[in-house]
Amino acid sequence: MNSINKDYFMKYLKNELTDDETRQLVAWLRENKENQEFLFSLKDSYLYLNYEKDKKEADTKHEWKLFSERVGLSKKTVSSGKHFSLKYIWTSAAVILLCIVGGWTAGMIYAGLDVPRGLVTLETEIGQQAKTILPDGTAVLLNACSKLTYSLEGWNDTRDVRLEGEAIFDVVHKKDQPFYVHTRNYNVRVLGTNFNVMAYGNDPEGVVTLKHGKVEIGVAGSNKNTFLQPGESFVYDNQTGTYQVEQRSLKHVYAWEHKEIIFEGHTLEEKKEELSRHFGYKFEIAPELQKMSYKATLRDESLNEFLAALDSITPQMSYCIDVNRKIVKVKKLNYGED
């Protein structure tokens, strides 16, 4: 896609183009069908994300005809075009507004589009999840503190996304077009399947778990790829760079999809990063309590409710919440304290 002033896109959507800007945009649209498809799909998404009720696919031929007539172009210049669908971004909490000139925040969930590169970014914060449908129809559920990035340009040739954090992918099968998920330490290649990728930079391990289908995982610096069968997990040690295949409970791996945290003999130390993403507080566990395990399922409890329940079943435990520093200190109770 050749260069054009990205401000023109928002002005076009708001019907604020000057005559000179209109001429420049027309010249850019005349260059190729890709430019027409790109602009008119943006218009369709812009209308949708501003609460328009008519959620149709962008008809490039029709939109180009309307635009041509509006600016007085000859009918001979109308491109035959093709239908182009830019799937809509949506979240479980609120509609994301798509920002054509860089992105803005809606409900603390960020979605942006870098027009010159056609780069789409979806990012969640603490305690949030977001859902999106990619251009090929693949569904993605993004966990808290995660970031998904992909490019619209060339999507019909290669389906590539980059993930920081955790997400569940339900990939549309395309025989001759693999789907790739790129993380910091490894890449996942699939044709059509459902799997979970956990790739938080501050966690001790990264994990790819396959629910159904088949995936292939390649690690940087290794010439041997790993293939997973349903129910298997690829576990990458972020400290040593080693990895192995394990059997892990799908119920536990996919618990976050239902906003649950499951303790099945787990310790607070093992779950502290997950708890931090869920509550927005850093957890500091005293050494004396780091090996104490629990069996429980956390669902809709608040931080205070969770800690109170924990306190009631752990007599030797006390805790302190530092609201200003966003820290929860879990320590061994000194019986001389009040």
Rank of each mutant, 00 (worst) to 15 (best):
T209S: 11
K251L: 11
G206H: 04
N238Y: 02
V207L: 10
P230F: 10
L250V: 06
K282A: 15
K214T: 10
H278E: 07
K211G: 13
G213K: 01
V215K: 04
K214G: 04
G265R: 02
Q239S: 06
P204T: 00
P204W: 04
A220M: 08
H252F: 12
Y243T: 01
R248K: 07
Q244D: 15
F227H: 10
V219T: 02
E284Y: 15
V207F: 08
G213W: 06
F279S: 01
K214R: 08
A199I: 00
T242Q: 14
L210P: 05
V197I: 12
E284H: 15
K271A: 11
T242M: 11
Q244K: 12
E257C: 00
N202T: 07
L228S: 08
E284A: 15
Q244M: 12
E260F: 10
A255I: 00
P230T: 05
L250C: 11
E273V: 03
E205H: 03
F283H: 04
A199S: 11
K251S: 09
P204H: 06
Q247E: 12
H258V: 06
N202Y: 10
F234G: 09
A255T: 00
L228D: 14
R248L: 08
K271Q: 12
E274L: 07
G218I: 11
S276W: 15
G231W: 10
L250M: 14
G213C: 05
E269A: 13
H266Y: 14
E257P: 01
V253R: 00
Y243W: 09
E246P: 03
R248Y: 03
V207E: 13
F227S: 14
K251E: 14
E269I: 04
G221I: 13
I262R: 13
N223A: 15
F279C: 03
G218M: 12
S233T: 02
D237T: 00
V207W: 08
S276L: 14
G241Y: 03
Q229S: 13
F263T: 02
T267D: 04
I217S: 09
H278I: 05
E257S: 01
L210T: 09
N202A: 13
K214M: 10
Y243G: 04
Y281K: 00
F279T: 03
G218L: 11
S249R: 03
Y243S: 05
Q239K: 05
E260W: 02
E270M: 02
E232N: 07
K259W: 15
H266V: 01
G280V: 05
K214F: 09
G201N: 07
E232K: 03
G265L: 09
G280Q: 07
K211E: 15
P230Q: 05
L268V: 06
T240N: 04
V215E: 04
